[in-house]
């Protein structure tokens, strides 16, 4: 409680390997580059392989104080397990995004939430040929819901600036990520327009 609306709290969760942390880093980095403050905390299940991972991003106009999320404004779950474990943390009126080719959640009181099903794996495969880029598609969808707080160009810049231990992503991977992101952004914009 008490995390007021001067902050957006985003909880991303899925299977290890779904690129949940990468997605969180993109959102956090984009916010930081826009002059906002952002904090990302990561939690893993105890298994070294095959467990869930969770990335909580707080984006704020002022400095983030309490760095953890007790209630989410946006919740992304790419697996049934993630949905089952953490759907409860989404506040009423919050945005729920899920990967609709992986599972079909049964959402209690679905009308209390903005629900966005995304066939992200399909979109990623169609646009980039790589199913794995579904995480970036989902970042696109979340961005569409957060605009104009988070801007398209910031995420693109974040993708270009993203480094890994072994250095930057190579340019072709960067471009694929940007395509996947834009496809997700389009999808989200259209979906939200349709709802409006």
């Amino acid at each position: 409680m008490q995390q007021s609306l001067d902050q957006v709290r985003i909880r991303l969760m899925g299977l290890g390997g779904h690129g949940i942390v990468f997605a969180g880093r993109l959102l956090g980095m984009a916010a930081a580059m826009q002059g906002l403050d952002s904090i990302l905390t990561i939690t893993y299940s105890p298994e070294q392989r095959g467990g869930w991972s969770r990335a909580d991003v707080i984006i704020a106009k002022e400095m983030v104080d309490y760095p953890l999320i007790d209630e989410a404004d946006v919740f992304l779950a790419t697996t049934q397990q993630a949905f089952s474990l953490e759907f409860k943390s989404l506040r009423k009126g919050g945005i729920f995004v899920y990967e609709s080719t992986i599972y079909k959640p049964v959402i209690p009181n679905a009308n209390d939430y903005v629900v966005i099903p995304v066939p992200a794996t399909e979109i990623a495969e169609n646009v980039t040929g790589r199913r794995l880029m579904m995480n970036v598609v989902l970042v696109g969808v979340i961005t569409s819901a957060l605009e104009p707080l988070i801007k398209e160009e910031s995420i693109i810049n974040a993708i270009r600036g993203m480094t890994r231990r072994a250095g930057k992503l190579d340019t072709t991977v960067q471009e694929m990520n940007i395509k996947a992101f834009q496809a997700g952004l389009d999808y989200g914009r259209k979906y939200l327009k349709g709802m409006g």
Partner: peptide, 9 residues
């Protein structure tokens, strides 16, 4: 641990 593992600007 929290400062070490949290990402921030």
């Amino acid at each position: 641990q929290l400062v070490g593992h949290m990402y921030g600007k």
